[in-house]
């Protein structure tokens, strides 16, 4: 959705490069297993799509002659090191297995939980949020919220299925969106443009 929006409108105002870069880190550190394990064709294709689309978005915002001019550089100032470092430490200390790939995988789970924060802060600073950007954040949060249902379903149907690190991180991730969801639905109900209160 976001890549299509940027490609079609040649405009990325209100889009956080920081969040996109965090997602690129998340996808690359988590999908290292592309090199040594195979789950399913769907799983492999989606991993490649996630890595590829976030790389494309970053390229557009950083380097595209027209799009890069519309980037809200002065507003997108979230200090991502304050997210990356704690997640790395957490990954080193709370994991299932003390190996490089497992620590990076765990780090990616923690980082994904908070990766949307720079985007939410930028949305809050943006007076009139572009409809497509609002929809993108809604779909991203909604996609992750559906995992909660999937986890309950798998827990009930697959004996021994449990993954506490993923469950807790995913629940926090979805909780971070709650405020956004509230204002998204309110603006949708009133047929108004989305704007988050500061």
């Amino acid at each position: 959705v976001l890549l299509l929006k940027i490609h079609a409108t040649k405009n990325c105002s209100g889009v956080s490069l920081k969040t996109q870069e965090l997602y690129a880190i998340v996808f690359v550190t988590r999908y290292l297993d592309l090199l040594f394990s195979f789950i399913s064709l769907y799983n492999t294709i989606m991993k490649l799509i996630f890595i590829g689309s976030s790389a494309c978005i970053i390229w557009y915002i950083r380097f595209h002659r027209v799009v890069s001019q519309t980037y809200d550089r002065e507003q997108d100032t979230f200090r991502v090191i304050f997210l990356i470092l704690p997640c790395l430490l957490l990954g080193i200390f709370i994991n299932h297995e003390f190996t490089i790939t497992e620590i990076l995988w765990t780090f990616s789970i923690y980082l994904e939980a908070v990766a949307i924060l720079p985007q939410l802060v930028l949305l809050q600073r943006t007076k009139n949020v572009d409809t497509l950007t609002g929809n993108y954040v809604f779909l991203l949060g909604g996609y992750r919220a559906l995992y909660l249902l999937n986890w309950i379903y798998r827990f009930l149907t697959e004996p021994g299925y449990r993954q506490w690190i993923v469950w807790i991180s995913g629940t926090i991730q979805t909780a971070i969106y709650c405020d956004f969801f509230y204002y998204y639905f309110q603006s949708w109900r009133r047929n108004e443009k989305l704007s988050l209160p500061s």
Binding site: R30, I39, M46, E97, Y161
Partner: peptide, 10 residues
């Protein structure tokens, strides 16, 4: 429980 669950989700 330190058993590593399979990483079969995205």
């Amino acid at each position: 429980g330190n058993t590593k669950p399979p990483h079969d989700e995205l």
